[in-house]
Design a protein around this nucleic acid. Structure first.
Length: 601
RNA sequence: GGUCCUGUGGUGUAGCUUGGUUUAACAUGCCGCCCUGUCAAGGCGGAGAUCGCGGGUUCAAAUCCCGUCGGGACCGCCA
């Protein structure tokens, strides 16, 4: 070992001992004769002092040393005089008097400062990611991520789960997201696909008698990026046999509640046990199936007041079967016309035609372009239902139900941001259950499962599966945390007949189903236990626990929005010989071809 | 595929609206000299940007216009 102690562990009690330390130069303060160096490793910072009267050789050796050089020193721990203690440093009571110096590696001037919290262009950070990882922010995020995963592994191990690895090279399934494909050399023209999730495999493990399985699984989806989406990401994937949905939900709830207490003890879980909302309730109250329950601003249904209310927009929407709903933006009664116009533009992104409003100024005046249409009674009833007081701003959308939910649900989150209602130290976990089993796809003329095609309907709705599909609810459960879906699962179909009916509903021919899922259908004929499970996005979960708003901040080597690795510069063109071995001929769009040719030079 | 935002020394910003006292400013970093108690050390001096790229308008462009490339946010997409 190049070190006897880490840079974070020396205390006053080590006074007088000889130590060997190694790390990176975090900062140097050169007084000419006396040189101070803050030496950094993953465990902390320690002050080295080079005094030419004690060791002229060591002093001379440290003279040329600069930031981020890697050095090893032998020295003696000295307690600092009381007035020179640095209370901001865990090792601030001592310093190390340097006797010998070895330069393990000099370093070029870093592209950005490691020792200073400073916003740096993300492209630069990603190009020099190995430097970025030395900074406290990334180091802390990776440590937190480790702790989360470690807790999960320990907890599930104690609950008799087995961690089983499943293949990365698997079979393409055209359902769901676009697959990443891997061409086969041995089988010309054929491909493997990287798994979008180990869904089928974990169900096969249940047939295999594993009973309790989990995996910290890498998943791949070839879709466009977002702040919370990467082409490859990590899921806690788990599956259990002989369980019902309460068992799976209960397990995850207990595990994450304990995990939060241990890993982020400063954060507070909003409510225990976690609230359970039906899909319908989530939409009615929050406008979305991934609600942020940390604050109010809930949607208020005014649909029943619309007929004959006198305001044509409301009446018309309801006549066409739509809804009228509102939000009381508490305390925004001082909003200007311009600010309200900005809110209107915001909801128009989500296809709302407009945003009606009633202002109650803090002085008790009412201002509204629509109030004049209503009778006194209706106006009073609207305000009463919305709990309106002086100083409030009432906002309304009247439209098709989906548009009302989407626009007000988004507006609610937007307003909460403006009002500063999103407390990062509060974790608003909640379950959303009783999802519709599927949604009718008008274009494709078939049912589209709201979870996936192995999700079992609720047993009590099973008899409606073919007669009244729209009324059937699934066993799906989603775990939502502060506006993010962080887990989703279901009880699976283990009955071939039910599975066959579902395939039919979603428009999968029997022979197509057999080709794609024959292995599963066959397996289910050999004694499949009832089973269910859940998958939880680790990146998203850690992102929230780390107070980051981008998933890239909790991934060591993420890809950018164009799915490029800017450090290694992947993806790249490939040698002709490699393509030949894979029996592949390129058919590039003309413009792309020119661009790629240029890239080669 | 679409909408919006963005690009100025190594890094972070100012300047751009209203073109010309700009020889492009400030902070930090970098280099050199001085300095024995600093911990964001200090003092003095210095180097470093043809303002992403291309074209246009103009007597004159970082600044206005068009195109293009890179980055980001969002929509579509993500069973």
């Amino acid at each position: 070992m190049h070190k006897t102690h880490t840079c974070g562990e020396l205390r006053a009690s080590h006074d007088g001992i000889e130590v060997t330390m190694a790390g990176w130069v975090n900062r140097r303060r050169d007084h000419g004769e006396l040189i101070f160096i803050d030496l950094r490793d993953r465990f902390g910072l320690v002050q080295l002092v080079a005094d030419p009267e004690i060791s002229p050789e060591a002093h001379a050796a440290l003279k040329p040393v600069r930031n981020e050089w890697v050095v090893k020193v032998v020295g003696v721990v000295r307690k600092r005089p009381v007035d020179m203690v640095n209370p901001d440093l865990s090792t601030g009571e001592i310093e190390v008097e340097v006797r010998e110096v070895t330069i393990l590696n000099p370093a070029k001037t870093p592209p950005f400062l490691i020792n200073k919290e400073e916003e740096v262009d993300e492209n630069v950070r990603l190009k020099y990611r190995y430097m970025d990882l030395r900074r406290p922010r990334m180091a802390a995020n990776l440590k937190l991520r480790h702790k989360v995963v470690k807790f999960i592994r320990d907890y599930l191990d104690e609950q008799d789960f087995l961690e089983v690895e499943t293949p990365i090279l698997f079979k393409t399934t055209p359902e769901g997201a676009r697959d990443y494909l891997v061409p086969s050399r041995v089988h010309p023209g054929m491909v493997y696909a990287l798994p979008q999730s180990p869904q089928q495999l974990k169900q096969m493990l249940m047939v295999g008698g594993i009973e309790r399985y989990f995996q910290i699984a890498r998943c791949f989806r070839d879709e466009d990026q977002r702040g919370d989406r990467q082409p490859e990401f990590t899921q806690l994937d788990l599956e259990m046999s002989f369980v019902e949905r309460d068992d799976v939900m209960g397990l995850l709830e207990d595990m994450y509640t304990k995990m939060v207490a241990e890993v982020v003890p400063d954060k507070k879980v909003l409510q225990t046990p976690w609230p359970r909302l039906t899909y319908t309730e989530a939409l009615d109250r929050f406008g979305k199936d991934n609600p942020d329950i940390r604050y109010g601003l809930e949607l208020v249904d005014l649909t029943d007041l619309a007929p004959g209310c006198g305001f044509g927009v409301f009446e018309g929407a309801v006549e066409k079967g739509g809804h009228v709903r509102g939000i009381n933006a508490k305390g925004l009664g001082n909003y200007s016309r311009k600010q309200i116009d900005a809110l209107t533009d915001y909801v128009k992104q989500f296809k709302a035609k407009g945003l009606a409003y009633i202002i109650r100024t803090p002085e008790g005046e009412m201002r509204s372009p629509i109030a004049k249409f209503f009778s006194e009674e209706t106006l009073a009833m609207i305000q009463e239902r919305m709990g309106a007081e002086d100083g409030d701003l009432l906002l309304f959308v009247a439209d098709k139900a989906e548009i009302v939910y989407e626009s007000l649900g988004r507006l609610r989150v937007h307003l909460a941001g403006e009002l500063g209602l999103e407390d990062p130290d509060v974790l608003g976990f909640c379950w959303v259950i009783d999802f519709p089993f599927g949604f009718w796809d008008e274009e494709e003329q078939r049912w589209d499962p709201s979870h996936h095609l192995f999700t079992s309907p609720l047993p009590e709705d099973l008899h409606l599966l073919e007669s009244d599909t729209a009324k059937v609810r699934g066993t799906q459960y989603d775990l939502v945390l502060n506006n993010n879906e962080v887990a989703g699962g279901s009880i699976r179909i283990h009955d071939q007949e039910v599975q066959a009916k579902v395939f039919k509903l979603i428009g999968l021919d029997e022979d197509v189903a057999a080709e794609r899922f024959g292995h599963m259908l066959e397996a289910f004929q050999y004694g499949a236990p009832p089973h269910g499970g859940i998958a939880s996005g680790i990146d998203r979960l850690v992102m929230i626990l780390a107070d980051e708003d981008n998933i890239r901040e909790v991934i060591a080597f993420p890809k950018n929005q164009n799915a490029r690795d800017v450090m290694a510069d992947a993806p790249t063109l490939v040698e002709e010989a490699q393509l030949e071995a894979l029996h592949i001929q390129l058919n590039l769009p003309e413009v792309e071809e020119e661009k790629d040719m240029l890239d080669l030079h």
